[in-house]
């Protein structure tokens, strides 16, 4: 018996973001290049570059997942998608040793203080990726009484990865965007906590990096 015989349907054309939009991954770099045209101190600049190369290529995630997106995050680490290729596989269970937190899954009112505390426990410099609709806006649970409508209310988010849940490829793309962003930050006098006061530091972390280059 043939299966597809019942109703042959023509293939549905899926509307999506055009592929060329995914190809301008360098837009961050370009923006910074423009801003840097006046020149920076050579020594500091070179040192910064070396440090940022190291920081950008060595981002260790915190093992953190609350729901569906967590399973996809596990898939990213597993054999087919293998985030180890980018050196991202050293998932640390202790927040002290992690560099960024993938907030994978819905954050509820009860979880919000815990998440904030986890973030506070991480050592600087630290980053946040919001994965999935729930962390971006509350997603399908936006009207619930117990769901935080977007974790940007409580944490400074660096990268948003939309989806419900995002595909592993999307997560990889998001993590690579974070790598780009890290590589473009200035370590000295910017994300190095010791040089500025606590409050100013928080401010700077929240601000978009392109604003103070």
């Amino acid at each position: 018996m043939e299966v597809g015989k019942t109703k042959k349907k023509e293939l549905v054309k899926i509307k999506s973001i055009p592929y060329k939009d995914f190809k301008n991954n360098d837009y961050l770099e370009e923006m910074v290049r423009e801003l840097h045209e006046n020149g920076v101190n050579v020594v500091v600049g070179a040192l910064d570059e070396a440090i940022n190369w190291g920081r950008g290529n060595s981002l260790w995630p915190l093992t953190f997942a609350t729901s569906c997106c967590g399973i996809e995050f596990m898939s990213v680490g597993a054999a087919r998608y293998d985030m180890a290729r980018f050196g991202l596989e050293v998932a640390r269970a202790s927040p002290r040793q992690a560099d960024f937190i993938m907030v994978a899954g819905t954050i509820t009112d009860k979880m919000a203080p815990v998440l904030k505390r986890l973030y506070d426990q991480m050592a600087d410099p630290k980053y946040v990726i919001a994965v999935g609709g729930c962390t971006i806006s509350g997603g399908p649970f936006k009207h619930s009484y117990h769901v935080v409508k977007g974790i940007d209310q409580i944490l400074p988010v660096d990268v948003f990865i939309p989806g419900c849940p995002p595909r592993p490829e999307a997560m990889l793309y998001g993590m690579m965007q974070l790598q780009r962003k890290v590589k473009l930050q200035r370590f000295f006098g910017d994300v190095n906590k010791k040089e500025v006061s606590e409050k100013e530091y928080e401010e700077r972390m929240k601000r978009d990096m392109t604003a103070n280059s």
Partner: peptide, 25 residues
């Protein structure tokens, strides 16, 4: 309760076709 999303309450304000999207989650 750390991931209590209030699905049952949400369903009460949704049409039946909408509620089925929440069971997946």
């Amino acid at each position: 309760g750390y991931i209590h999303r209030g699905v049952e309450k949400l369903c009460e304000s949704m049409t039946y076709q909408q509620t089925i999207s929440l069971t997946d989650r």
